[in-house]
Simulated assay, not measured.
Amino acid sequence: MLYFDHCSSTPPHPDVVRTLSEVMLKHYANPASIHQMGMEADKLIQRARQLAAELYATRAEEWIFTSGGTESNNLAVKGIARSYRHRGNHLITTGIEHPSVYEAFKALEEEGYEVTYLPAEADGRVSTGKLAAALTDRTILVSVMHVNNETGAIQPIAEIGRLLSAYPKILFHVDGVQAAGKLETDLKGWGVDLYSISAHKLQGPKGSGWLYAREGLMLSPVLSGGGQERGLRSGTPNVPGIIASAKALRMAVQTASERRERMLELRSRLTAGLAGIPQLLIHGTDGSEGTMAPHIVCCSLPGLKPEVIVHSLEQEGIIISTKSACSSRKDQPSRVLLAMGCTHEVAVSSLRISLGDEHTKQDIDRLIERLSMIAAKLEPLAARRQL
């Protein structure tokens, strides 16, 4: 089986699985306990926190362990909005955000906040000019993802950070779930105040993630309880998940550069092959100027049902997906593609192919061949339905 759905979840690295198992068997004590076993578990957590700090040139105290990207995004967006409401009630995000960010802003609108949703350009990237025009003296938070989870478009995070540096009262959150371990990231240099990461997107375990929150920020917690993680994230820490995730993050970040170059070659081979399929549209740029993530290709076959293509490829031993995994089972057009100006017909027929370290040129060629065959087979049926 060829698995091309790494954006949804990656296969865990064998070393990560071993670490997870070892820690689960040996360090099962509650790290909040005052006995020796509890303190040993707590030491492991603090070591993992320090590792994240070293990888991103930050401070250990600035990292909060969560259950994954969704919780990290909710804690960042809701936590900042509620803590800084005395400054203003205007928030800015984009129409292409992951549901865990987009729906968090929708929930805040119900609490009385005013939210501006910026559209994306045709290449899938957000305009810093439009962002600048949307800023007001009541704006307290800007949230823009690093890499779009459907199209792979890399957002101009450094440019946005420079823009916002002139507005010290506006905080900047970045959903980095699809970028961590794949792209170089300079949190301090870019002026990022909050950054979300999920372990299972970089060969780590599910149910574990991080939120970087710059020192000095006020965050209103979204969970009530025992006050773990400095009162910001109550709940008994997932010690095995935290340690295994730290291992996955270290391996991904330290090898990101060489892996990225190899994956860019595979992506170029894939987009060149897809360009030969009639009627197929590739979203975004060719990535030659660093505008696209190396592991994501989004395309549409207007007139064809994407779920039929997905299941047809599955019968050929190939796994791909349609848009975000969080919304792939909903028979609706891609909100991301609509925000980029695509038509309903194009947005409702989108497919997402996401690459991993295990893929070869032969795998890419097989995917192109099978997809081309299936598209040619289904196209007459689509044309018949339109008559």
Rank of each mutant, 00 (worst) to 15 (best):
C298M: 10
R138D: 09
R138V: 08
F65P: 01
I319C: 10
G189V: 07
L378K: 07
E369P: 02
L367R: 06
D42M: 14
A32L: 10
I157K: 08
Y3Q: 06
R85W: 11
L164W: 07
V144I: 15
I296S: 02
L51M: 12
H35Q: 14
H6G: 11
K305S: 04
E261Y: 00
L194I: 14
P302N: 09
E229K: 07
V17L: 11
A48V: 13
S72G: 10
L266C: 02
V239N: 04
P333S: 06
L264V: 00
S21V: 11
D286Y: 12
P31G: 11
E229T: 11
R47S: 08
R262W: 01
A81F: 13
E62H: 04
R82Q: 13
V297Y: 03
R260M: 05
S324H: 12
Q332D: 06
R47M: 07
L270K: 06
A275D: 15
H6L: 06
T151R: 03
K78T: 08
L232T: 09
F172V: 01
D123C: 02
Q178N: 05
V142G: 06
R125I: 11
T66F: 02
V253D: 04
A107E: 13
I318C: 05
G189R: 03
V147S: 02
Y195D: 10
D137C: 01
S327H: 08
P278S: 09
V253R: 05
Q332Y: 07
H311E: 09
T360W: 05
H311F: 12
E62I: 07
D5K: 11
K188N: 08
P237G: 11
T10M: 13
G356A: 15
